[in-house]
Every structure is written in C-alpha cells, then in structure tokens.
C-alpha cells in the first residue's frame, strides 16, 4: 500500500511538472528540434521554395557551392550529374562578417569597460549619465536608426557637414564608398555599448574597495591595479559579455539590410552572412542552400564559442585567491 501511494505521488508530481513544461516542450520539439534536423536534411538538397516537387538530393553540393572558390573552382558536377556554379559571393560575405565581428566586438567591449570604470566613481548624476549612454542601445537595433545612419553618413549627410565645418575637404560618401561602408556599421555597433557597460558596472560594484586600498598602500599604481585587480575579478563578466556579443554580432542583419537598401551595399562591402543567407533563400528561393549556410553559421559560432570557453581557463578566475 505504502509503495502504491508512493508511486501515485511520484506520478502526480511528474505529471504536474510536465504540465507546466508543456508549452516549452512543444515549442522546443516543433519549433527548434524538428526544424534543426529538417534544415540539416534540407542542406543536402536543392530545395527550391517555388518548386518543392523537383527537390533532389545533391549530397555535399551546397557545401561545395559555398567553399568551391577556395579551391579555385567556379563550377563543379553535383551527385545528380548537374553542373552547379560556385557561389561567387559566399567567401566575400564570410570575410565581411568576420571583419565586422572581430573589430566591432572587442572595440565595443573596450569602450564599455572604460565608460563603466569612469562611472564607477562617487559622482553626482551617474544614474542620469547611465541612462543617456544607454539610449543608443535602446534604439540602435531599430529600422529608424538604420535609416538615420544612412542619412548621417551620406555624401551630403550630417557627418560630412560637420567635418566640412571643421575644414576638411574632399570628403567621401561613407556609405557609398566600399572602403568605408563597413566602418559605418562597426561604428553603429560600437555606439551601442550601453548594455555591456551596465553589465560591467554591475560587475565592478562587486569588487571590494579594500583591494584597491591595500594595493595602493603596497605602492601599486592605477595601471597595475587595473591589471592585477580589476581585470582578474571582472574576467567572468568579460567572458560573458564577449560570448554574448560575439554570438549576437554574427547574426546582425537589420542595419546592413537597411543601409544597403536590401543588398550587400556597394561591391558587397556590407554583405553580412545573414543578409547573404536571406538573399539566397528569399530572393532566389534557394532554401536548401540557405539551410546549408545556416548550418555552417551554427558550426562557426559553435567553434568560436568553444575556443573562447577553452581559452577562458587561462584568463578567467572565479573567486579570490587563485
């Protein structure tokens, strides 16, 4: 009898818990797990949204289409016997995205940390300053700001007006010049350092003031204190910010899409990975190829996250006294 009631209790407890979990579980299986497997399968086909009935298995065709140009090929024969063209812009989109991520993320974090340290003093009005500095982050991801950015960095835009007033001449159209277009997007990203700054600020407040006092009694100057106290004690927060910002940056889309007017900009200088994926999938309807691109993106992000995590054993310290 006792075990019976125990079993009933156990069952009831689990049934109630899984009832609470049902929406999430349903979402996970229908909208995440099944689509992931499905898109992996699609990535080996030439699925076209407009003619799904003629879908064929093409093996690694989509992957060759991406990376064929690395081996100096412009076309290859797929397993169906069909001759496929290598995607001439894929590698370009990859380099643009890597350049964007590897420049904008460290810059953003450095600015965010510097500002957080500046605000981590007993200053009047810090609350207000923090709010003002967060405003670009609050609005930066919107279409509105992307439209504004286009206006700011055009040949006759605000930035050139201001630079012209300072005496500069022969100013380029920043957005229409392939040399600078990506930099306007990097600037737009760095401009939104607000949330990283707030996270750093919360981390800095956790560091006991006594450490700094003790260090200055021992004769350590500010620079030494920064590298010996601030950085090590803040390292878990830095790791968190770095990974989140990196994952996020790889998926940037809206700003490049709006600023490039729905394309990769002049000479594809702002052809972000996700933008290229969108164009392949939804302008050319090649959803099989888009799936393959998505999986490669997942692998890239996964690999980089793993590398950062592995390296973190060397530079992240948890707790004092290590």
């Amino acid at each position: 009898m006792r075990t019976m009631s125990g079993i009933v209790k156990f069952l009831r407890r689990n049934i109630v818990a899984y009832m609470f979990l049902t929406p999430w579980l349903l979402g996970f299986f229908v909208l995440t797990f099944y689509p992931m497997i499905y898109s992996l399968g699609l990535s080996f086909t030439d699925y076209d949204f407009t003619k799904p009935d003629s879908t064929q298995w093409i093996g690694l065709g989509n992957y060759l289409k991406m990376f064929g140009s690395v081996f100096g090929q412009s076309e290859f024969t797929a397993s169906t016997g069909e001759v496929m063209r290598v995607d001439p812009y894929y590698i370009k989109s990859l380099t643009v995205t890597f350049a964007y991520v590897f420049v904008s993320v460290p810059l953003k974090l450095i600015v965010a940390l510097a500002m957080a340290m500046l605000m981590n003093q007993k200053l009047r009005g810090v609350q207000f300053y923090r709010a003002v500095y967060y405003i670009p982050t609050l609005l930066g991801g919107s279409v509105a700001i992307a439209v504004l950015w286009r206006k700011l960095f055009e040949k006759d835009g605000l930035v050139n007006d201001l630079l012209g007033a300072l005496g500069f001449t022969d100013l380029p159209g920043w957005i229409t010049n392939p040399k600078y277009a990506l930099w306007t997007l990097i600037l737009l990203t760095v401009w939104q350092f607000g949330s990283s700054m707030i996270i750093f600020l919360a981390g800095l407040k956790q560091i006991p003031q006594e450490y700094y006092e003790a260090a200055s009694v021992d004769g350590a100057n500010k620079v030494r204190q920064f590298f010996a106290i601030t950085i090590p004690l803040l390292s878990p927060v830095i790791l968190f910010n770095l990974i989140m910002q990196m994952i996020y940056a790889f998926q940037s889309f809206t700003q490049a899409y709006i600023i490039g007017g729905g394309s990769g900009g002049v000479l594809n200088s702002t052809l972000f990975y996700t933008l290229h994926l969108y164009i392949q999938g939804w302008t050319y309807h090649e959803l099989g190829y888009a799936s393959a691109m998505a999986w490669v993106l997942l692998l890239i992000i996964g690999a980089l996250t793993a590398i950062v995590f592995r390296s973190s054993k060397r530079w992240v310290s948890y707790g004092v006294g290590e």
């Binding site: 995440t32 699609l42 996700t274 994926l277």
Partner: peptide, 11 residues
C-alpha cells in the same frame, strides 16, 4: 545560444 537561422527555413 542557438542562432535562429538554423531553424529558420523549416519554420
């Protein structure tokens, strides 16, 4: 941490 694009097409 999963990039949404990997579920995009099937969705």
């Amino acid at each position: 941490m999963l990039p949404g694009h990997v579920t995009l097409v099937p969705r």
